[in-house]
């Protein structure tokens, strides 16, 4: 049995919890996020014939009042950086968080999820922005937690990347 810790980071209200909720059935209420800044969920997967248990640490979104605690990223085998396509500033936050995360996690695999693709017409992030992220060598997936678009693929892809590392 293989167990992996995955962390969800991103700015406030980018849809981290919604993405996790799409993927798992949770037993903890979200009040933990507001009290200690993290909520943990679990998902069992079979990837390429291997049983994998994912422990998803859904970290409170960074905003002006609360910073992401780096200690929650320690021990992660992979992480998602979640961006809200309709808010350009969340991309800026994502870039800062990635810098911090790569330092803490020692270059484990990660994927940038540009969420809310169901509101594409309202996006402030354009294709050039996305292309510039990809040029950094980062994996980018456009997702929609509301429409359940590409959510499962994103988790499976990150799991594969973690297993292949």
């Amino acid at each position: 049995m293989i167990k992996k810790k995955i962390t969800m980071v991103g700015a406030f209200a980018v849809g981290k919890t919604s993405l996790v909720q799409r993927f798992v059935n949770s037993i903890y209420s979200e009040k933990y996020q507001t009290t200690i800044g993290v909520k943990i969920d679990q998902k069992n997967l079979v990837i390429d014939g291997k049983d994998v248990t994912l422990l998803l640490w859904d970290i409170h979104g960074e905003d002006d009042f609360m910073k992401v605690k780096p200690t929650y990223l320690i021990g992660s085998s992979g992480y998602f950086i979640v961006v809200d396509g309709t808010r350009y500033e969340t991309l800026q936050t994502a870039l800062q968080l990635q810098e911090m995360a790569s330092t803490v996690t020692k270059d484990v695999p990660f994927i940038v999820l540009i969420n809310k693709s169901d509101l594409r017409q309202d996006w402030e992030i354009n294709n050039d922005d996305i292309e510039s992220i990809r040029k950094r060598g980062w994996q980018v997936i456009l997702t929609s937690a509301r429409d359940n678009f590409a959510v499962e693929d994103a988790f499976e892809q990150l799991t594969r990347m973690m297993l292949n590392q």
Binding site: K3, K5, I27, Y28, Y32, I36, V38, I40, D41, Q42, T53, L55, W57, K69, T71, Y72, I74
Partner: peptide, 12 residues
């Protein structure tokens, strides 16, 4: 699994 992670998070 979740209890263990939560305990770890509380510790952190």
């Amino acid at each position: 699994d979740m209890v263990a992670s939560m305990l770890s998070a509380i510790g952190d």
